Amino acid sequence: MKRRIFESLIYRYQQNKANKAERSMIDRWYDTLDQEELPVKEIDEVQLWNSIQQRIGGTVPKKSEVRKISYWSGAVAASLLLCFGILFWKKQQELNLIAKETHLKPGYRIFETGASQRKRVLLADGSTVVMNAYSKIKLDTVSYDRRDRVVELLAGEAFFEVKKDSTKAFIVNTQQVQTTVLGTSFTVKNYAELDDISVSVFTGKVQVTANNHPLGVLTRGEEVRYSKNNHHSNQEAFDLTTRNSWIEGRVYLKQSSFAELALAVKNIYDVDIKADDERIAQQRYSMPISKQLSWAATLESIKAIHHNKSRKEGGIVHIY
């Protein structure tokens, strides 16, 4: 009933049919709506009520006591409705503002590593992430674990050990590829220096998609490689004993490209190597690279495989 009275007052005001007292009351209500900097807790209900009463009382025509009482009674009802209406509107605006800020301002946090660095990150749900050198992940600490558990691998390589939760999927987004699990362990690799994105599963099952197209469901010992250039994928088995050796500061290359060799050298020694021509760039390498060996010894091993030579120009080691 009170809401219909209030809506009727607004309608009369808009149609220019409101009397002086009604128009004054509505004008003051509109003025109050513009004072958005006042929080709800600072509104004194008694003071607001008394102020409305005084303002309305001062505008009532003095024709007769009966008419005065009639006006006053109507003003009381309308003022009560106005008072509660303002308080409700203020509270609703505050809640809407909080909801809007929560939606527009997520708590993004970035974790990253540099040369020869490895970092372990413990997530809010108990899952862990081990990051390789030159890697970067991002997650929204506000929304994480409320619905799904979403992590974005912006660059590099990371090993995920996911705490099982059948109600909340664990999702890793990296460029075009999305990896979804409930509870398992797997590695995602996406370096800018390499053409492909790879997902390797150590335990459980992992669903992999690329641009919303399924690439397959992987189980223990299976790996999928997705080409960022031609968008083709290839699924194969991998060596469980050496795949994540980078966690201990070692990399085992097996018929790996020069780009993979250069990446391993960069991650472990923070040294840039470059192939001087296409012939060198197409060569394959099978060898271990370990922080326990000096860079000089490793460089000699690299050159010996294909009987190449090297020279240093600035901060780059050229292989020719």
Rank of each mutant, 00 (worst) to 15 (best):
N229I: 15
Y285V: 02
G216Q: 09
T241K: 12
T298W: 05
Y285M: 04
K205E: 03
V251P: 00
D277A: 11
Y269E: 03
D276V: 02
N212F: 02
N244P: 03
R284P: 07
Q282K: 11
R284Y: 15
S233N: 14
D270V: 09
E236A: 13
K228F: 11
A297R: 11
R220H: 15
K254N: 15
L263M: 12
G221H: 05
V217R: 06
S227W: 13
Q207A: 09
Q283V: 02
E236I: 12
A297C: 05
K266H: 06
T242I: 10
T242N: 13
W246F: 06
S256P: 09
F238H: 10
F258R: 01
E222S: 12
K254D: 15
S257V: 01
I273F: 00
S290I: 01
M287W: 09
L261A: 10
V208Y: 05
V224N: 11
W295T: 03
N267S: 09
H231I: 08
W295E: 11
T298F: 01
T219I: 09
Y269I: 02
A281V: 08
K266G: 03
S233W: 10
N234L: 14
S286P: 11
A237T: 10
Q282D: 08
L240V: 04
T203M: 03
E260N: 13
N230H: 15
R220A: 15
V251A: 00
P288T: 08
Q283E: 02
A297W: 11
V265R: 03
N229S: 15
S256I: 07
E260Q: 14
L253D: 11
V271R: 03
L215Q: 08
Y252Q: 07
S245A: 07
Q255Y: 14
A262L: 14
M287R: 07
I268H: 01
L261F: 12
V265W: 02
S290P: 05
N212D: 12
A281S: 10
A296W: 12
Q282I: 02
N211Q: 11
Q292R: 11
E236S: 13
I247C: 03
N244F: 03
G221R: 06
L218D: 08
D272A: 07
V224Q: 14
D276W: 03
V265Y: 05
N267I: 07
I268G: 04
A237W: 00
F238P: 08
S290L: 04
L299E: 05
V217I: 05
N234M: 15
I280Y: 04
D270C: 09
E248R: 14
Q207D: 00
G204N: 02
S233E: 12
A296H: 14
R225E: 15
T219A: 06
E278A: 07
R225C: 14
Y252V: 00
R220F: 14
E278Q: 09
N234C: 13
I273R: 02
I247H: 07
S286Q: 10
K228N: 10
V206P: 04
T203F: 04
H232P: 06
Q207P: 00
N211P: 00
V265Q: 03
S256Y: 00
T203N: 02
R243Y: 09
T242C: 11
K205M: 05
S294A: 08
L293W: 06
T203H: 00
